[in-house]
């Protein structure tokens, strides 16, 4: 066991994913409470063309450049979704599905262009951003994740009070002089930022789990905003550590899915055993004598 824990790859990957999952859990909790859980999913998929385009334009497969393209397309996707839902009868559900798949389609079209074109070399790696390849994470990737996470958490801390009011009572927050549009935008920007830097670790498809599951776990164990955030962050980090360990110790188990499965297990456990969970509620119901 010690052998795994002290290996260089493990330390790099574990550090990267833990920091990412901690920040992702906290920021994701806000989206979940706002009922916008799946925006992260749409944004995650929509970053794909951004990555390919960044590679095409600048020609290097370096995480910083690619993350920039990802952020840009994440924002474009979000603005498109918002425009559609605000100005037509199309619901959020429909707009998410449309934008998610169309942007991903654009990414695939660009990818096929790059792959069939001799001007571009070394395209094999780009697919890693769809499924994630944590094992290939470099020290520079960890630096980027750390920087993005610190910035995100710093912004979160700076607007903590406003965001809290905005989530629980948007009407009051407007009368209290808080700019709701700005708050929503801030939340979104940090979500997109974290998704973009986290793609290499868990991939575009699974990253949404990192945003939702810790948040739901937090909500099941506590009703206090600050405690929910803390539990969300810590359960994310714990799952990241465990998942990375399983994947490093085991053979042929990808890190991203291992983290997601660990989180899902924690999630299921909480759903049953947490103070607000199913078991406690059934006991309470029985005591009332009102079992239907």
């Amino acid at each position: 066991m010690m052998e795994v824990l002290t290996s260089f790859t493990f330390i790099v990957v574990a550090a990267g994913t833990m920091i990412l999952a901690f920040a992702g859990g906290m920021v994701g909790a806000i989206s979940v409470m706002k009922g916008q859980s799946l925006i992260g999913d749409a944004v995650g998929h929509a970053t794909f063309p951004g990555i390919v385009l960044a590679f095409m334009l600048i020609g290097v497969k370096e995480t910083y450049t690619l993350a920039l393209g990802a952020v840009l397309f994440g924002i474009i996707a979000f603005l498109t979704i918002q425009m559609i839902t605000n100005h037509s009868k199309v619901t959020l559900d429909g707009a998410l599905a449309l934008v998610l798949s169309s942007f991903f389609g654009l990414g695939m079209a660009l990818m096929s262009f790059v792959q069939g074109n001799p001007d571009f070399e070394g395209t094999q790696g780009l697919n890693d951003y769809i499924f994630g390849q944590a094992a290939y994470m470099l020290r520079s990737d960890v630096y980027l994740i750390t920087a993005a996470s610190v910035i995100s958490l710093f912004i979160l801390a700076a607007f903590y009070i406003q965001i809290r009011i905005y989530i629980f009572d948007p009407v009051f927050s407007r009368t209290a002089g808080i700019n709701n549009t700005l708050m929503n935008f801030i939340i979104l920007i940090i979500t997109i930022l974290l998704i973009s830097v986290g793609l290499k670790a868990v991939g575009a498809i699974l990253i949404v789990n990192l945003l939702i599951a810790p948040a739901v776990i937090g909500q099941l164990w506590s009703s206090r905003f600050s405690t929910v955030l803390l539990i969300a962050g810590s359960s994310g980090a714990f799952a990241a550590f465990t998942g990375t360990y399983i994947s490093t110790a085991g053979e042929n188990i990808a890190t991203g899915p291992a983290i997601i499965l660990t989180l899902s297990f924690l999630m299921a456990l909480s759903l049953f055993c947490a103070p607000k969970g199913i078991i406690r509620r059934n006991i309470y119901k029985r005591r009332m004598g009102g079992v239907s």
């Binding site: 009922g35 916008q36 992260g40 789990n209 939702i212 739901v216 607000k276 969970g277």
Partner: peptide, 10 residues
């Protein structure tokens, strides 16, 4: 205990 959109994502 979990909103529908979150349930889908999970």
């Amino acid at each position: 205990l979990v909103r529908q959109d979150a349930a889908i994502g999970l």
